[in-house]
């Protein structure tokens, strides 16, 4: 083999290898360039969703809690003695309104309830009960009856509770299975019962199906100026014909969560000296300024301080105070 042929062979080898290497180096760049052109793909997500139809925006909170009444200073007692499921934030707007208008707000502690229940009511003009989880003693219930008979104002406010946990004190007797009727305890005096299951509305609601709207059903001081309120996790309230009037009710498409029974449902009633409301969240700092909740809170505050209670009622009991041990839930 000549040297010339050998050099020629080597040259061909070098050129071919060089072409392959250079080609291998260029191809990825060419592919990247090509694929970058192809990446201009359809925006499937934008085709599928119209943000303007999806986005839900909470209504801005507005308004202030005001009271129309112009009475002398009254004393409102709020029960926290019966393991009431209520926090300070849960009633702050109501308390603030009362205090700002010159009224006294006192909390009934467990010790007070044991030793001074009667005397506490005697000094009070109104009594507020929110979600009690401990039963009332018979003597306490007697005192409450006399208090109300004497013109003292009573507000009963309760959220849906489990049927098992609703023994309470008779004031808030449960409706069986979240519907109407049932053992009423003292509520038979008032003719009022609270449902144990939540209400919901899949058609007309505020942000969530459990936040139902309620509208006035009759002219009443409690709903004066109210167009619509929002109740979060509301309980139906039922009443006998002589217990007062249904003053707030939900829409017809509202249902009870457990039974799926359709509404409309009464969620607030008002008698001469008693109101019962099937939701406590409306007067919390979170919900107080949604829809016309602040108007309802102001009206409730007015109701509490506009009673005409007989002085000195309820009279002291002759044989000791109502100091027996609390009854265990039934």
């Amino acid at each position: 083999m000549s040297q010339r042929n050998l050099l020629g062979g080597v040259a061909v080898f070098v050129v071919v290898v060089a072409l392959i290497v250079v080609g291998a180096a260029i191809v990825p760049y060419a592919q990247a360039f090509t694929s970058s052109e192809e990446q201009n793909t359809t925006n499937i997500a934008k085709q599928q969703y119209d943000a303007s139809e999806l986005v839900v925006t909470p209504a801005p909170d507005s308004g202030t809690v005001t009271m129309d009444s112009n009475t002398e200073s009254k004393t409102v007692v709020i029960d926290v003695a019966h393991e009431n499921d209520v926090s300070e934030k849960g009633i702050q707007p109501l308390v603030d309104a009362l205090v700002a208008n010159g009224h006294n707000v006192k909390y009934l502690t467990r010790d007070d309830a044991r030793q001074n229940f009667n005397s506490t009511l005697r000094k009070a003009d109104a009594f507020v009960v929110v979600n009690p989880e401990r039963t009332y003693e018979t003597k306490q219930l007697d005192a409450l009856r006399k208090f109300e008979d004497a013109g003292g104002r009573v507000a009963l406010i309760g959220d849906p509770q489990s049927a098992e946990g609703m023994s309470l004190f008779g004031l808030f007797a449960p409706m069986p299975r979240g519907e109407s009727g049932g053992d009423a305890g003292l509520t038979s005096d008032y003719g009022i019962t609270f449902g144990s299951s939540s209400l919901y509305n899949m058609h007309d609601y505020y942000l969530n199906h459990q936040n139902v709207y309620a509208t006035p059903q009759s002219n009443s001081s409690l709903t004066d100026g109210v167009d619509k309120v929002v109740f979060r996790d509301a309980a139906p309230v039922s009443l006998s014909s002589d217990a007062g009037s249904a003053v707030l009710a939900t829409g017809a498409q509202t249902k009870i969560e457990t039974s799926r029974q359709s509404g409309p449902f009464t969620v607030a009633v008002q008698g001469d000296n008693v109101v019962a409301i099937g939701d406590s969240d409306f007067m919390s700092t979170q919900s107080a300024y949604e829809a016309d909740n602040e108007v309802l809170i102001g009206n409730l505050a007015d109701f509490l301080v506009t009673g005409d209670k007989t002085e000195g009622a309820p009279a002291p009991v002759s044989t000791g105070q109502n100091s027996g041990p609390p009854r265990a839930p039934a």
Binding site: Y49, E53, V56, T57, L207
Partner: peptide, 13 residues
């Protein structure tokens, strides 16, 4: 409120 609104938005989608 904001959390409920976010969840309601996702539900609508």
């Amino acid at each position: 409120d904001q959390r409920e609104a976010q969840i309601e938005t996702l539900k609508r989608g």
